[in-house]
Design a protein around this nucleic acid. Sequence first.
DNA 1: GACTGGCACTCGTTACAGTCGAGTGCCAGG
DNA 2: CCTGGCACTCGACTGTAACGAGTGCCAGTC
Lengths: 340, 340
Amino acid sequence: MGLDDRKLAVLRAIVEDYVSTQEPVGSKALVERHQLGVSPATVRNDMAVLEEEGYIRQPHTSAGRVPTDRGYRLFVDRLSRVKPLSPAERRAIERFLVGAVDLDDVVHRTVRLLAQLTRQVAVVQYPSLARSSVRHLELVPISTTRLMLVMIADTGRVEQRLVELPGPVPADDVTDLRRLVNEKLAGARLSDTPPLVQALVEDAPPTLRPAMTTLSTVLLETLVERHEERIALAGTANLTRGGLLDFQGSLRPILEALEEEVVLLKLIGETEPSTTRVLIGDENEFDNLRAASVVSTGYGPGATIVGGLGVLGPTRMDYPGNIAMVRAVARYVGELLAQN
Amino acid sequence: MGLDDRKLAVLRAIVEDYVSTQEPVGSKALVERHQLGVSPATVRNDMAVLEEEGYIRQPHTSAGRVPTDRGYRLFVDRLSRVKPLSPAERRAIERFLVGAVDLDDVVHRTVRLLAQLTRQVAVVQYPSLARSSVRHLELVPISTTRLMLVMIADTGRVEQRLVELPGPVPADDVTDLRRLVNEKLAGARLSDTPPLVQALVEDAPPTLRPAMTTLSTVLLETLVERHEERIALAGTANLTRGGLLDFQGSLRPILEALEEEVVLLKLIGETEPSTTRVLIGDENEFDNLRAASVVSTGYGPGATIVGGLGVLGPTRMDYPGNIAMVRAVARYVGELLAQN
DNA sequence: GACTGGCACTCGTTACAGTCGAGTGCCAGG
DNA sequence: CCTGGCACTCGACTGTAACGAGTGCCAGTC
């Protein structure tokens, strides 16, 4: 039951028209707007087949056709041509990202840029701690029994934790602690630290032993085990474009999902392959996001990937355009990170 | 043209009923649900006066009355009774806030708590840098010509900036720089630093002069001048409650406004008086938020105020309840901060 | 003088019937 | 295998009518 070339062309035309007009597309309008070289009747026959195969469907009997999730999937996999960015878009990306003063700034600019370019909701994951290395650990005394532990990662992330020491620790000991942890951990990938931290406790001189033990607990528990991921979001107002047609009338489930970091991480953070990932409609695992699609990819300095970014919008979205933009932005951000 | 007690009681009843039912309230329903002791006809006369005075209005001729922004204002100022929190709510607040590991955690928990309690959009400003003091400044060498400047404030905020030095600086000099800036700045309020930083440059030994100059520029420009404010947001999904009746059908302007940090800061960050502030409808300066109200207050350890927090929702909101919750949460957060 | 019951009036909402037309499926013929 | 023609479906739109919640006003009562 193969689909010949013309049927595929019809499907592509339906997707493109529906995405741009937001209205079910009929056979007549189709032959008018595209050079298919056949009559509406023929197109109707093709449509009937496409519908039988589950690529398109009719909202009601007397309406045109609309792509199904499966139809979009086929379109994305086999029918979409890469859409090169316009010079204006390239310029926008460069202009937007120069002059960022720190990691927060980079992430915020990136997420806003992405939202503006794609006119969708944009999501950017901060460089993952698990994929970062320790650049420096700083211990700042707050009181005699309290330290602030500050970790600076090579990706630019800075994390801090309050450490409640079991007893008073003099300033000199803090200096020693600082030296010891840095000697052992500086340069290590965060995911490799557990054994190192273990050794740190065992090798510590007796006087520093208790302090080092609590310190290592904080290190492991808060920074490694529940590896802290952070997320930035922008462009939620774009969800209201297209009236209430997308998302079957209520933004509620979408907005709820967007508030859950765990959900967003699952959507854009799973960056196993370095390629761009497209999740269409109910291909994602969250009921709240059945009516949404996600385009995401990993980014990082050079070839390594330290985090993910992407956009979320209605299944009726401009996939080729969004894929191109997500990729381009990821590449620029990677270059930016490589400079530091 | 005074309003006698009964007319005020009628206004109060209208506000309360409209807030809970979300439907225009008529004279008959009013006397049924409240012990006003008079007939519907009398209430109608009172309503006519209230309408003339601009406190209520009729959506259409054959509908009940709805409070105007002016009506809500009068209600909030003179008619609402304080609504004590339920034990369950108190418990929720305590349970939610214990176990926060750092400032980020405190802020995130707070904003989610507030959103959940009030069922509105919640906004929490991070402790303002301008109102913080420097606890410690750390300089971490990234390369010979690059430093990472990390500032730890007494409010728990940690800010970092990359510093591009004019030339290579040996490790010993970095140690000296670190000592000098900390001697001069530790303990100082951030708003008082400019003259101190100036002195720092002037007093620096010749060899450290160039490095200290760039360092001071970064300090002043990025931390003091454009005093970095941060904001956390939660509960946007609550905007969809009440169908599309609130916000005249489109969430777009609201969502757009919520993405602008500047807007949010104006709304909740202006904490001149330590009292709770209520902005109703177009009392705020943003066109996008004409249909919204904001309840906000300042928070901080002890009597000092270091930031603001609040909720945003439709003008038709439970003012007494929200005011009580915003106050209670602000108090708890203040206590939490005081412990550090 | 303030309140009340009664009554006519307004006007949005709902229900229903009828028309229109975009779009389809099917079929016979090229 | 494609095409033109045709009957059919069904949502969108329109107009009409009945309904009822709510009001304003007025005459009467305490």
